[in-house]
Design a protein around this nucleic acid. Structure first.
Lengths: 136, 136
DNA sequence: GTAATTGCAAAGGATTTGCTCTGGT
DNA sequence: ACCAGAGCAAATCCTTTGCAATTAC
């Protein structure tokens, strides 16, 4: 098991490493890989094991603290979540800038299309990639 | 480089392995991993190397012959493409049944939202997952 | 004091690459 | 003979696990 938030308790958090990671995540504006985050941590002088970065990131993403997407190479990228609830992202292929967007329309569309095809209990993934109008 | 389709020629294809792979793809109704496809090949008595399966699948997906999606574990799944042009899929989490669906609305939505956020040259990925109404 | 967390080293697992062999024309 | 394609073994690379040492409360 990973780390059940123990219903009530303050369980998770409290370690130097978790703090440092949180700080980095708060600063990184673009989706970054665990390895990049780990590198940034070292750069800041904070020594945190790669394993810990992965584990922490895993927990945070489950708790909704960070969003994740997969780049075309299959690597998982993380970024602190700014809005709550279901949303998607538009990410710049060039600079990595990423904006969270809502998609009520999409959700509706997804449910309809899926229903017509005979599916229930529908869920979906949707990621947008583009280039900042003034990038590169 | 992988294998430029040599403009005119019958280039790719022609080998026993390619034929066998094509046959399997034509039969498999659900998205399958390279490994599953490889297993199915062996099951049919056709001996084809895993490497070949991967390479062939890579070419086919570039040529639009097969669609690919990634399951939550990051594994790439393949399936012969039935319709031409841009489309998405609704896949059953339980049995794997997958239906291709068009989404003009989505494309439009994607372009608009991205444009509003200041992005150009937009592209997107969208996959739907659900459960057949009468599955499991 | 005790349970949670770290983190190194090793394991895993999908996919790719190096390089030689083979089959088709 | 010539070349694209096949394939085995080894290499990659991200991510997870085993397990002992450390830390938080």
């Amino acid at each position: 098991m990973t780390s059940r938030p123990t219903s009530r308790g303050t369980r998770v958090r409290g370690t130097r490493q978790a703090e440092a990671l949180g700080a980095v995540l708060a600063d990184l504006p673009a989706f970054s890989s665990a390895q990049e985050i780990h590198a940034e941590l070292r750069r800041r002088g904070e020594s945190v094991g790669l394993t810990t970065v992965y584990r922490q990131l895993q927990v945070l993403s489950q708790d909704g603290g960070v969003d994740t997407i997969r780049d075309e190479s299959g690597e998982t990228l993380y970024r602190r979540c700014r809005t709550s609830g279901h949303h998607h992202h538009v990410t710049c292929r060039s600079c990595g800038r990423s904006v969270e967007v809502e998609g009520r329309e999409i959700e509706r569309w997804a449910d309809n299309v899926a229903a017509e095809a005979g599916f229930v209990d529908v869920d979906h993934t949707e990621e947008l990639f583009g280039r900042c109008a003034d990038c590169t």
